[in-house]
Amino acid sequence: MASEINHCGYLGDKYAKLILKVTSAPKSVSEISNETGIPIGTVYRRLEILSNAGFLKVTGYVENGVKWKTYHNRPRRYNVTNPRISFLLDIIKKNPAISYRNIQKISGYPFGTLSNSLSNLEKDSRIIVKRSTRRTHYFPAHISSVEYPVLINLRKETAKKIIKFLAENQKGTYLDFRECTNKAPSTISITLTNLVEEKIIKRISGFKPHFELVDPMFVQNILRKISPSNIDKMKDRFADTFSYF
């Protein structure tokens, strides 16, 4: 077909240009189609051509028994067989939303070495880094961004206990949270306000106001991905009261 591209002429094709532009981070076929507006059938044809020509790297993973593929155009900046790189990727995979300080603590790598390795992994789109004023969190590349808020809050002691309580009991009152967290009222109030603002929980009004998860199945699926031992450890040493500012 005249509209199709060949390996040498890809730069002149508007669809190929768009695909190469949005795949600076790993993207699935549906994500590429949604972000570019290109029909999904056309995306599949361009991906095949670009991948065969070596312009895209294809990464596969399995989640809940389903095979997924992501495509990205960033060149590798590290040797995949490097034990240091493999170790860092394993740490982040097992501890999604982990902080820089905790990566350093687990790995024992000097700050200069660690910073350089993490920077290269981010540039290669092997990990995703979410930065805020007070905290930087590291995620495996295959985790969807919609899961970030829950995973980040599982690293805050009070928020983690509240989320787990609601996942196990469906609903909870302010007094329930005081009992399960053993935290000061101000800390609980700040945490509840943040969780409501991030649409992780919702307040139900009535004779006995209480809180529930906005999407219980969504949270349950995230918790199932993380082993119980890792959930118990998923807490950064950072005061709850100040972690939302």
Rank of each mutant, 00 (worst) to 15 (best):
residue 2 A to Y: 09
residue 2 A to G: 11
residue 4 E to H: 05
residue 4 E to Q: 08
residue 6 N to Q: 14
residue 7 H to P: 10
residue 8 C to A: 14
residue 8 C to P: 12
residue 10 Y to W: 14
residue 13 D to N: 07
residue 13 D to M: 02
residue 16 A to G: 07
residue 18 L to N: 06
residue 21 K to C: 15
residue 21 K to S: 15
residue 22 V to N: 02
residue 22 V to Y: 04
residue 30 S to G: 11
residue 30 S to Y: 10
residue 33 S to T: 07
residue 40 I to M: 02
residue 45 R to H: 10
residue 47 L to I: 04
residue 50 L to H: 00
residue 52 N to C: 06
residue 54 G to M: 03
residue 59 T to A: 06
residue 63 E to M: 06
residue 63 E to W: 07
residue 63 E to L: 07
residue 64 N to Y: 12
residue 65 G to Q: 06
residue 69 K to I: 11
residue 69 K to H: 12
residue 73 N to F: 04
residue 73 N to H: 05
residue 74 R to A: 08
residue 81 T to L: 08
residue 82 N to S: 07
residue 85 I to E: 08
residue 88 L to Y: 02
residue 89 L to S: 08
residue 92 I to S: 03
residue 96 P to Q: 02
residue 96 P to S: 03
residue 101 R to E: 13
residue 102 N to H: 05
residue 104 Q to W: 06
residue 113 T to R: 06
residue 114 L to W: 01
residue 115 S to I: 15
residue 115 S to R: 11
residue 117 S to P: 13
residue 120 N to K: 07
residue 120 N to E: 15
residue 126 R to Y: 15
residue 126 R to P: 12
residue 127 I to W: 01
residue 133 T to C: 12
residue 137 H to Q: 10
residue 144 S to E: 11
residue 144 S to M: 08
residue 146 V to C: 08
residue 154 L to M: 07
residue 155 R to E: 08
residue 155 R to T: 08
residue 157 E to C: 08
residue 157 E to T: 13
residue 159 A to F: 03
residue 164 K to S: 12
residue 168 E to L: 06
residue 172 G to Y: 00
residue 173 T to N: 09
residue 174 Y to I: 11
residue 178 R to P: 14
residue 178 R to Q: 13
residue 179 E to S: 08
residue 180 C to Y: 08
residue 181 T to E: 09
residue 187 T to M: 04
residue 187 T to K: 02
residue 187 T to H: 04
residue 189 S to G: 10
residue 190 I to M: 06
residue 191 T to K: 01
residue 194 N to H: 15
residue 196 V to M: 01
residue 199 K to I: 07
residue 199 K to V: 09
residue 203 R to Q: 11
residue 203 R to N: 11
residue 205 S to T: 13
residue 205 S to Q: 12
residue 206 G to Y: 01
residue 207 F to A: 09
residue 208 K to S: 13
residue 209 P to H: 01
residue 211 F to S: 00
residue 212 E to K: 04
residue 212 E to H: 04
residue 216 P to K: 03
residue 218 F to W: 05
residue 221 N to Y: 08
residue 225 K to D: 12
residue 226 I to V: 06
residue 233 K to N: 09
residue 235 K to A: 12
residue 235 K to H: 11
residue 236 D to I: 03
residue 239 A to W: 14
residue 243 S to Y: 05
residue 243 S to K: 02
residue 245 F to D: 12
residue 245 F to Q: 11
